[in-house]
């Protein structure tokens, strides 16, 4: 079992590393910027990253299944725009939201169908829907911003539940549910079989196609929710929403320890990843450092996280044999 123990130590240390870094930043910030731990700032911290956080829940499932979904960056503005249009046409808030989410789900369904039927890499399928959707968004809005949201709609981005901003509350509830479901529910557990060994999944009688549909639809709906929240926050919707967000979401998930080759990872790691980037993001706000640096820091963090995991981890196992090529390539 020594290998087993070794493996566990490495995974533990890895999460520990992330956790330690987070704690250190928090302590450092709390010392130099007392404001940092004030309730107001914590709220700013949460709200600054809540869209990414919500989408990261679904992306975790997608990446564990050895897939990827770029189209969320198109779905998020799409849903924001559609809900605006429906509201402007007096569909009522409930119906508008449901319709927007239904349309978002449809995008996920199309993704899944392409992946299942054409047997093409999810990267390409979702790249195609992303490109198409961005175009669709422009066509619908003619590049203009959608406005005219009724005040009752503001709740989803600005309202409060038990004193907590609604988006954060919603995320917290979903995060708890996702953690528990992924860990313990038979249906959700299928993702580990599909990502870990697709033949095993097939021979165990798992309906792979249906599960792929499930996770891509789920992921799209989450992106749709993020879009609605954004629209409600800004009381407007435009095609500029969500540019680059797919990459931030993927970064969060990867930093959280989900492996792109599938079969490995959990929601807990993703939540740590979210926390980490949210704090970095907030640090910039608090220190008044130019926000331009954010992207550089995100990128470096991603590289460092993966470097530590993959390279140092492999070295530590001490076999002296580098990973086989196919283990890490696309």
């Amino acid at each position: 079992m020594s290998l087993n123990e070794k493996f566990r130590t490495i995974t533990k240390v890895k999460n520990l590393g992330l956790l330690t870094t987070i704690v250190l930043i928090i302590i450092g910030m709390a010392i130099f910027f007392p404001r940092f731990l004030s309730p107001i700032n914590i709220e700013i911290l949460g709200m600054g990253f809540v869209q990414e956080a919500i989408m990261a829940l679904g992306m975790t499932l997608i990446i564990i299944s050895a897939g990827i979904d770029l189209s969320i960056a198109g779905v998020m503005p799409f849903s924001a725009i559609m809900v605006g249009i429906f509201l402007n046409n007096n569909f009522g808030i409930t119906v508008s939201i449901l319709l927007a989410l239904l349309l978002s789900a449809l995008v996920g369904f199309v993704n899944a169908q392409m992946i299942n039927r054409l047997k093409v890499h999810p990267f390409i399928c979702t790249l195609a829907t992303l490109t198409t959707l961005r175009g669709v968004n422009l066509v619908i809005t003619k590049g203009e911003t959608v406005t005219g949201f009724p005040p009752a709609f503001y709740f989803f981005g600005q309202g409060r539940v038990f004193g907590i901003p609604f988006p954060i509350f919603l995320f917290a509830v979903m995060a708890i549910a996702f953690t528990y479901l992924l860990k313990n529910h038979k249906y959700f557990q299928q993702v580990y079989f599909i990502g870990g060994n697709i033949n095993s999944a097939r021979y165990s009688g798992i309906n792979i196609d249906r599960f792929i549909i499930f996770i891509y639809v789920l992921n799209s709906i989450l992106a749709g929710i993020a879009g609605i929240i954004t629209a409600s926050q800004y009381i407007s919707a435009n095609t500029g929403f969500g540019i680059g967000i797919e990459l931030r979401v993927i970064t969060v998930v990867i930093i959280g320890g989900v492996s792109l080759s599938g079969g490995k990872g959990n929601i807990g790691g993703t939540i740590l990843g979210i926390l980490f980037l949210a704090i970095i993001n907030n640090t910039f706000v608090q220190t008044g450092a130019p926000t331009y640096w954010q992207e550089v820091v995100y990128g470096s963090m991603l590289l460092i996280a993966v470097f530590l995991e993959e390279y140092i981890g492999a070295k530590r196992e001490g076999t002296g044999v580098l990973k086989r090529w196919r283990e890490f390539m696309l």
Partner: peptide, 22 residues
Amino acid sequence: VHQELSLVPKLKVAQNIFSHRE
């Protein structure tokens, strides 16, 4: 019992034995 093993290496023995019939 297949020629290429149909187990998931990153899951526990018990989960593999009862895959999808937990």
